[in-house]
């Protein structure tokens, strides 16, 4: 069934109506702030739970089985199913939704924190021990700085996951930008639905870019440089030890 042909302008009627941007009451700015607040609060709670556990498992390698499998299990849990389960168990409200969001955000953070610590070069850890560092110093001054790219990537995917699922959670009564979508769907107000979708998409992309900037700021230039050099080496200069080697791979450019 082809969709009715609607002039493009109609889609933006809600989004570009100044009245919906008023700061008083439940306008777009209010919904936007709610969405950001839910996302950041959930991410903070999840990080407080997942980071220490991930660091412990990664540092001691005890319970590695748990850390590896929780990542896979978390990915296969249907987000909407978990939200529905929490709401039917506990009732409509902000708290059950936040709990469900935390349950979804913990696995990626935990799994990548563990993977990050495990990816650290063992000889660097041995050197840190040899220098007389105590276990806690080895963890925070050697392992964590080198594991940071992976730890941050876990936090970033949790951030996107929470931002997307918070939108879905409007179906079970949460505020935020999802309200525009869900309320618009139930009243057939398509411009409102479209406004909600565009805003939440832009917000998600901005949050991702912002977290990429944070990643740049916190990851030590030494660790970053090394990984950059490694990929460049593979991409542009296949074999630096062989000056006669062709600069582009033969088969691909041939």
């Amino acid at each position: 069934m082809p969709a009715p042909v609607v002039p493009m302008l109609n889609y933006f009627a809600y989004l570009f109506d100044g009245g919906h941007w008023s700061l008083a009451g439940e306008g777009i700015p209010d919904r936007l702030l709610q969405h950001i607040a839910y996302t950041l609060v959930t991410l903070a709670i999840s990080a407080v739970i997942a980071l220490p556990v991930g660091l412990f498992i990664g540092h001691t390698n005890r319970g590695a089985f748990l850390a590896i499998n929780i990542g896979n299990a978390g990915r296969s849990l249907p987000t909407f199913g978990l939200l529905s389960l929490m709401v039917v168990l506990v009732g409509i409200g902000t708290l059950p939704v936040i709990v469900a969001l935390v349950v979804l955000a913990v696995p990626p953070i935990l799994a990548s924190t563990y993977a990050g610590l495990r990816s650290v070069d063992r000889s660097a850890v041995d050197a840190a021990i040899g220098m007389g560092m105590r276990p806690i110093q080895v963890l925070f001054r050697a392992e964590v700085p080198m594991a940071l790219p992976l730890i941050v990537s876990g936090l970033r995917s949790a951030l996107l996951q929470v931002c997307a699922t918070a939108t879905v959670a409007a179906y079970v009564g949460l505020g935020g930008l999802g309200r525009l979508l869900i309320d618009g769907l139930s009243t057939n107000d398509y411009p409102q639905v479209f406004a909600g979708a565009v805003l939440v998409a832009v917000l998600a992309v901005l949050l991702d870019l912002l977290s990429a900037a944070v990643e740049r700021a916190v990851v030590s230039p030494g660790v970053r440089e090394r990984s950059v050099r490694r990929t460049r080496w593979r991409r542009a200069r296949p074999d630096p030890t062989n000056e006669d080697a062709p600069t582009s791979p033969v088969g691909i450019s041939g």
Partner: peptide, 19 residues
């Protein structure tokens, strides 16, 4: 990849002709 799924579900019909 960062666009939430629900947003994609409602924006796609505006871009290509599917209901």
């Amino acid at each position: 990849y960062s666009v939430p799924s629900l947003a994609l579900f409602v924006v796609i019909p505006a871009i290509i002709p599917v209901g």
